[in-house]
Nucleic acid binder design. Structure first.
Length: 277
DNA sequence: CCCCAGTCCTGCGGGC
DNA sequence: TGCCCGCAGGACTGGG
């Protein structure tokens, strides 16, 4: 499940294949399944970028941003199982789109569950979206002050708040548990009960966990879905301390076992000893 | 406005 | 052995 580190790894991987290249065609693959959500609808979307030159490839939170010379932005959200591949895809069955490029290999968007989305914006239109506040600050640049102000405004559990993309954008279910373990914070702690000192620690842990995960090219879980653009596994799953470790001894205190609870229909993992209320 | 349950989707694994 | 059901969760929708 691509979160910020996995999407960052994808972006770094496809940049050499896409930046500075002419997009001959953005081709929809023959796929019998329900098509990926596309705005504007295909083929209008493809028509607007056919023959356009790709200038930059970047990332905001869990979104991939491909900027064209025409000042349009193609924004890809991989969501649960979407992958960008510069290699042969794992199965043709779930191929969704092909970037047909001039003088180089194709790049593919592959998505098993098909929950991903593709949206084409005009530059100013995307800026309006960013200004609307629907997306909070990117997790790698969010400041202590931004976090503390938003935490103060809600008594929702901190784990739930970390997943709220309006508060901080880029953290997903996996990294939220890992981050709270590092700061020894109970996941059910009301956000407005976090002190300035605890919030400072949390902000540092967010940076620490996400940048370390980027260095390890993200996490490939047991379902094996996430791969980098060359179809290789990430390795941060080997550094996981609590995520999917229910029943195992806590790697910190080595006394208690990791618990799993459900918060807003999502699993949370924590150590009841290290992360006491 | 705030918050949460439901929804989309497919593949896997447990239980019978 | 094979079928069925529940579960995985990112982000959006609707309703209390």
């Amino acid at each position: 499940m691509p979160e910020l580190p996995e999407v960052e790894t994808m972006v770094r991987g496809i940049r050499p294949f896409l930046a500075g290249k002419k997009l001959l065609q953005f081709k929809k693959c023959r796929c019998k399944r329900r098509p990926i959500q596309c705005k504007p609808a295909y083929p209008q979307l493809a028509r607007r970028i056919k023959g356009d030159n790709i200038q930059t490839v970047s990332r905001i939170a869990k979104r991939i941003i491909i900027e064209f010379e025409s000042e349009q932005l193609l924004v890809i959200e991989p969501r649960m199982t979407g992958l960008i591949l510069a290699d042969d895809p794992p199965s043709k069955e779930h191929l969704r789109f092909e970037f047909c490029l001039e003088g180089t290999n194709s790049v593919f968007f592959w998505d098993r569950r098909g929950l991903g989305t593709v949206t084409l914006y005009y530059k100013e239109e995307f800026q309006q979206f960013l200004d609307s506040g629907k997306l909070g600050p990117d997790a790698l640049v969010a400041t202590f002050q931004q976090l503390f102000e938003k935490f103060q405004k809600t008594k929702r559990a901190i784990k739930v708040v970390l997943l709220d993309q309006k508060v901080i954008a880029g953290v997903g279910n996996l990294y939220a548990s890992e981050i709270l373990f590092l700061t020894k914070t109970h996941p059910e702690t009301p956000a407005n009960q976090l002190s300035k000192r605890q919030t400072t620690k949390l902000q540092q842990a967010i940076l620490n966990v996400l940048t370390t995960a980027i260095k390890h090219e993200g996490s490939t879980l047991s379902d094996g879905t996430y791969r980098n653009v060359l179809n290789q596994n990430g390795s941060y799953q080997n550094q996981h301390r609590v995520y999917q470790k229910e029943g195992q001894l806590c790697p910190n205190c080595r006394k208690e076992r990791i618990l799993r609870i459900v918060q807003t229909q999502r699993s949370t993992f924590y150590c009841p000893n290290c992360q006491s209320k």
